[in-house]
């Protein structure tokens, strides 16, 4: 007797739209590598996009492709380095395909974190109308706390407010203890490390008491919320079924953690970036995120974009050579 085996059908009706019915001719409008990246849908993906290789174009087409496949725009999240980048990409996708692309959530990690925290901050003991401190404000608060704790006396040297805030912020962004950073950058202050720590605790307390969050708090509190509250994590992961992160080489460690937390249910995560253009480590970004992505997601697919549409070959030869002479890491 012949046998017919029943297969598990995809639950979301995905992949049922036949490519012939797509409005955009992806194969014609993209080169082979871009096409490969754009049509990669489920699971983790790392797209290494060299300078001038049409990275933005690739992201825009991928967004359109997902929507054409039948993914609900509400279920797509696009995280970028600036708000303008997200707006531009979604506008281009809208022109390319149709107005469905307007309903995709796009923005920076900080604005996305803020949107979520405005709803759930109460769970962390904040009120939802908290103020956001920019760097200058944050430094002023540090200074105020230092004065209150009487560390502003002239008898003993104590770091200035800018240095203190920089220390605290980098400690959080790089997840390195303050003590280690002190040893590295300000060894002459090592002996007063407990005092510096005390000011830090005071700073944290002050912010909480007065309903204030600095930039780092937005990310850290978001991660805290996701770690602490499984139901919120599940709600967000269910909502954002396809997550894309642009400029992944410029993310810091908290942001990499957020990516993992948000994608925990489906692991449909595509990160795009160029390790050769990681230039913001002084702000806490770490090249490690993009380098270790394949270890974090062992089944990830890597696609490299190498065809440049910007420069002449002599300029590219020079650029290639400059990189090649670097110490291999």
């Amino acid at each position: 007797m012949k046998k017919f085996t029943l297969k598990q059908l995809p639950t979301d009706n995905l992949h049922l739209v036949h490519p012939q019915r797509f409005r955009i001719d992806y194969k014609k409008e993209l080169n082979a590598e871009q096409y490969e990246a754009v049509t990669s849908v489920d699971g983790p993906h790392l797209i290494i996009a060299g300078a001038g290789t049409g990275k933005t174009r690739t992201v825009v087409y991928r967004v359109a492709y997902l929507v054409e496949l039948g993914v609900k725009p509400d279920n797509i999240l696009l995280l970028t380095f600036t708000r303008k980048a997200a707006q531009d990409m979604l506008r281009r996708a809208t022109i390319l395909l149709d107005s469905r692309c307007e309903h995709i959530s796009g923005g920076t990690f900080h604005s996305f974190a803020n949107n979520v925290l405005r709803r759930y901050a109460v769970k962390l003991g904040y009120e939802t109308n908290y103020s956001i401190l920019d760097q200058g404000d944050a430094e002023d608060v540090v200074s105020l706390v230092r004065t209150r704790l009487k560390f502003d006396t002239k008898e003993k040297r104590f770091p200035r407010k800018e240095a203190l805030y920089d220390l605290y912020s980098r400690s959080i962004n790089t997840m390195t203890p303050v003590k280690e950073l002190l040893a590295l950058d300000y060894p002459h202050y090592l002996e007063i490390e407990p005092d510096i720590q005390m000011v830090h605790n005071g700073y944290v307390q002050y912010k909480h008491q007065h309903n204030l969050m600095d930039y780092d708090d937005l990310l850290v509190n978001f991660a805290l919320l996701l770690n602490k509250d499984e139901s919120i994590r599940a709600v967000l992961s269910d909502r954002y079924k396809y997550i894309m992160v642009d400029e992944y080489q410029d993310t810091n460690r908290v942001q990499a953690e957020l990516v993992k937390l948000l994608a925990f249910k489906h692991r449909n995560i595509m990160v795009v970036g160029d390790d050769a253009q990681c230039i913001y480590s002084f702000r806490g970004s770490t090249i490690k995120n993009i380098m270790t992505f394949p270890q974090e997601f062992p089944d990830c697919k890597v696609v490299k974009l190498e065809e440049n549409f910007r420069s002449t070959q002599p300029i590219l030869n020079l650029a290639n050579e400059i990189l090649k002479r670097g110490t291999v890491s």
Partner: peptide, 16 residues
């Protein structure tokens, strides 16, 4: 680093 070599299909151009 991820190894990559940028290239263009267009020809010409003067040396830096």
């Amino acid at each position: 680093m991820y190894y990559k070599e940028l290239y263009t299909r267009r020809s010409g151009g003067s040396l830096p």
